[in-house]
Design a binder for these strands. Structure first.
Lengths: 208, 208, 208, 208
DNA sequence: GATGAATGAGTTTTCATTCAT
DNA sequence: AATGAATGAAAACTCATTCAT
């Protein structure tokens, strides 16, 4: 970071930025259309058109629709990871709660591309589907949660006797399930009440 | 007609019997294929064939694919309701826990048609989808849970101060989300540990 | 007719009336639906239902859809023939004009089942179609017109030198064409003006 | 690139050329099949095949079957208009007669795509059909005829007192009806006699 | 890098017809 | 005479993919 004397005239571009403008536009369009119509309902032609390009550009850049989907999952997870990992609290428990709050807000209030990730998650439920990319995303999410729990157990803010993996599993499942229910019928219940109940449930379940 | 002593070897079925027999077979086949391939992947032709009939029968009986899906959701919810409402404990809290356990087992162990219901739930996440039948199913599930919580608050086994609706929302979301994660990658974590963590979480969150 | 002493207690029923009530109801329903949706658009199931019976009755009574159509053309032509042959004037020319007026009114004002006949006529234009029943109806219509022209030529009211068959051909074509144009866009021009122009054209073309 | 002297044996067509070439071939094939089998009998797959392309191309270019039909009607009317407007006589009446003769010949002798136009006209008779494109074609044909009549009334070759619009209506109806009758049963009457009768009828009806 | 023409597989839907009741 | 369950052929339409420009 503080890299000595040479000032960085050209700020480092992340891998994402280096990727062609067109590809990012296509991924954005894909995320939007998938959120609206599901994976199957989002056609490559429409994705291209919405991105401001042509019918054929998705195949040109990604080869196949499946490849586009995988890339979208990757990009979304990377962003998710950056978002959630930034959340920190004064101890493990508070970090965990901050992350849970971030998640609830990201989904319940339908920010950015997370809804698309959730829709793809829903599509992966069928058993013949190749759920690998989505399953990796689930695993990563659990690991981020497990990490906070571990921290909390180490610093004494979280009960040392709880089952680390199972708790993370239940917590991630809860967050996903709630977000999904809210997508199916938005506004079914006030978001504040849901957030409060979630955080209270997490706190009572895990605190030392 | 005047049947006398000779038993009819092939009992003649009435039109009514033929009808409901065929419809149930079609719904069974649809549930199985939807679980495997998702709503979109399950073609009407294959549903008819798997049910032991022709490819045109689904349309003959249900008119459209959407109508078939709605009917399947209805039937599944009816069965779910019967299953869960049978579960009773010595007080409200125990009833609630029994119901949660029933739910976890029904989904995690992939009994009957519940997985198909979950797959249809996942498909309803896209916002342009007509999620109404699925949303009703969610609402019904929440109402059944709210009912047990209310009972527990009345008999003193559940904390009177918790937010009834929000708690039910969170609980149902948690159960759905966990079941879904398990469908995407079965065996990711031992079912017993998950069940234990779920029940413990519910108990600590709600008990008086 | 005046059949001696025995009074006819039971009045003779025409062939049409003797035909089962159901068959006539089916033909009525067919005529209506064909007028609205064309031959292809009128399904046997809907014809049965509109007639107040079941899906399967058309096949039960007529065997095939083609047979139903033929029977409908026959019945319509019989009724047409009765209608037009009744029209008489003081001489051949006036008879002809009366018949032309009857035709214009029957079609332009969309009475009874004649529109269905016209729709079936329009369908028969495609060359692979079996136009035989419709062609017979055309031929019959021309013969009725030829008959009046012949009468007029015999009684001196119609020019003896005109080409009998060609004139009938042109006249029937004119009536059909005008009726058809009016069906495609009803009210495109005032019926009175059309009727007047038709009759004037016929009179000047044929009069002695 | 730097092409030098070698001529390109297979001239590269631009996308634009490929497009209009394919569309015209599809319209030609559609006209032929519609003439033979009617609109409903002409399947998109067969149209594509007859045009020398694949079964999916009609949808690719025209979107829907209805759009294809509309385009075909437009193209036919454009050609009709060019053909009929070229016909000129020494005065209004002779122009009108020349146009009528052109029409009779075009249809009775089954030239090019005019028969298809007539078949589509026949299909539009059913009232629920969207007859708009066909109705426009009728209106255009009438306008072209009205124009000649007006000319004749101005130059004194046509009776100034006749009802302009009604006469055009009757004349177009006559031409259409005769052509249609002839399509249903070709050769029913000698074309020369029909042509003569038509022209005589027009002349006596309209001349000054 | 980008466009869009062309393909053909796959799916839903309609419907005349057959046949059991 | 009448019903309606079941069949299977036919067709329009969608769309991922390939390929020429």
């Amino acid at each position: 970071m503080a890299s000595g004397t040479t000032p960085e005239l050209v700020p480092r571009r992340t891998q994402e930025e280096r990727r062609s403008e067109a590809e990012n536009a296509l991924l954005d369009a894909a995320a939007q259309l998938i959120t609206e119509k599901g994976i199957h309902g989002a056609s490559l032609a429409e994705i291209g058109r919405l991105a401001g390009y042509s019918r054929g550009l998705v195949n040109h850049h990604f080869g196949t629709k499946d490849a586009l989907i995988s890339r979208l999952i990757e990009r979304s997870m990377r962003r998710y990871q950056h978002g959630v990992a930034r959340e920190k609290g004064e101890n493990g428990l508070e970090t965990l709660l901050a992350r849970a709050r971030w998640y609830v807000d990201a989904y319940l209030q339908r920010t950015i591309e997370h809804p698309a990730l959730l829709v793809m998650w829903g599509t992966a439920l069928a058993s013949d589907t190749d759920g690998t990319p989505v399953a990796s995303a689930d695993a990563l999410a659990r690991r981020l949660i497990e990490e906070s729990i571990k921290l909390g157990q180490d610093d004494g803010s979280i009960n040392a006797e709880i089952d680390l993996e199972a708790s993370a599993y239940v917590l991630v499942g809860m967050l996903r399930g709630i977000a999904a229910m809210n997508m199916i019928k938005p506004g079914g219940l006030d978001v504040d009440r849901i957030r409060t109940a979630v955080l209270k449930s997490v706190r009572t379940a895990l605190q030392a």
